[in-house]
Design a binder for these strands. Structure first.
Lengths: 219, 219
DNA sequence: CTCTAAATTTCGCAC
DNA sequence: GTGCGAAGTTTAGAG
């Protein structure tokens, strides 16, 4: 990894055209050839960047980064204030917990929390337009499609609506109703869902993992 | 901006729980207090980060970054291999060209490329659920709602569908049909749009900007 | 403050 | 490779 602090201007031509006027910035060159330009604010997003695979060519004060697909980043370096290179090695990577897949797993294991007598037909029930997170039957034997999100927004309701429309064309399953389950459901998503007869369920991740009582609230 | 190369392990607790085992990485501390941890690959995304506003507290080998909303990033530093601080000043920022706003502007100026005799009613036509990109009339005087995207995906079709449903409730406008215009339209989005009677139009950005002939293709 | 839509989104998986 | 959905998405803008 090479760290350069330099006065530079930058031009990107690719998916769009963008220009950075001359100023002092961090140029970060990584072992995979990727380059990013950082200002002194914002943790996440670089001002400008080039994803791997790409190659850097230095010529005079002009550094040209070219991507395989033709995108180009041209850095015009006026003055270098710092330049150091460091060996980092391969990173062991990030271990995550708490994502949607895990929510799905937990809810599948405790499907009865959605209602007494509910049973799971299967997780990732395949349809022509994609897999339904959970397909189950309620205590009456009626089919229910469950869409699980970490944060429930309008998109998720639309997605579930498309699944329901498709599933209800199958005479072996119909009538299928929907449950929209998320750790947090945005008000507009809730309104849209309920307007379509979809039940909203707020999931409590810690409770789902810990105890089976009190693990969610029905509204 | 402070650049630290260090052997460290990192724990994030917030929207999820994540752990980075001990390894050598770049720790980037910016003037706004934000912190990001980078491995030696990938230009864009840090391994771990904390967005501003947040505060860093160093105590012994433990650096704790706390966000206003309670999220926390704990960096356990075993060995510091490099540590330098640099004054960068405020960045003049990025100038972009070619984004959706510009596409909308260009298409509004050349609305006749959608069809002979078409006229623009207005850009950003306001509705209760948000502004319609372009509202126009075709050669017969019938109302058309145009949704413009850089890349046309299912979400955009759903968005346009919601607008059309609303606009068609207005007796002064109805019947309103839809045009889905994008530089690139994903196959599934095209199928969904056409199934709903929405016309798909592929925009050529350079041609739109350059000449008015040949500036788009209707499928 | 919330909510929505865009992003050079990136990233990962499945086909 | 393409397509599609998730992401600690982040970011910008409107209400």
């Amino acid at each position: 990894m090479r760290l350069v602090i330099a006065r530079c201007s930058v031009d990107y031509v690719g998916r769009l055209t963008a220009h950075l006027p001359m100023a002092t910035r961090l140029i970060l060159i990584k072992a995979d050839g990727s380059v990013s330009i950082h200002a002194d604010d914002r943790a996440y997003k670089p001002l400008n960047w080039m994803n791997p695979p790409c190659t850097l060519k230095e010529s005079d004060g002009t550094w040209t980064v070219t991507h395989k697909n033709g995108e180009q980043l041209v850095i015009t370096v006026e003055e270098i204030l710092h330049d150091s290179t460091h060996e980092l090695g391969v990173d062991p990577g990030l271990r995550k917990d708490g994502v949607e897949a895990h929510l799905q797993e937990l809810l599948a294991e405790r499907i009865e929390v959605l209602g007494k007598g509910w049973t799971l037909i299967r997780r990732e029930y395949p349809t022509a337009i994609g897999p339904v997170d959970l397909l189950c039957r309620d205590h009456t034997g009626a089919c229910v499609a469950v869409e699980i999100k970490r944060r429930g927004e309008i998109d998720g309701v639309e997605q579930l609506t498309r699944y329901l429309e498709l599933l209800n064309r199958d005479p072996l399953l119909a009538p299928v109703r929907g449950v929209f389950a998320a750790q947090e459901i945005k008000p507009q998503a809730r309104v849209l869902a309920e307007d379509r007869g979809i039940t909203c369920v707020t999931l409590d991740y810690d409770a789902l993992r810990g105890r089976e009582d009190d693990s969610l609230r029905l509204f």
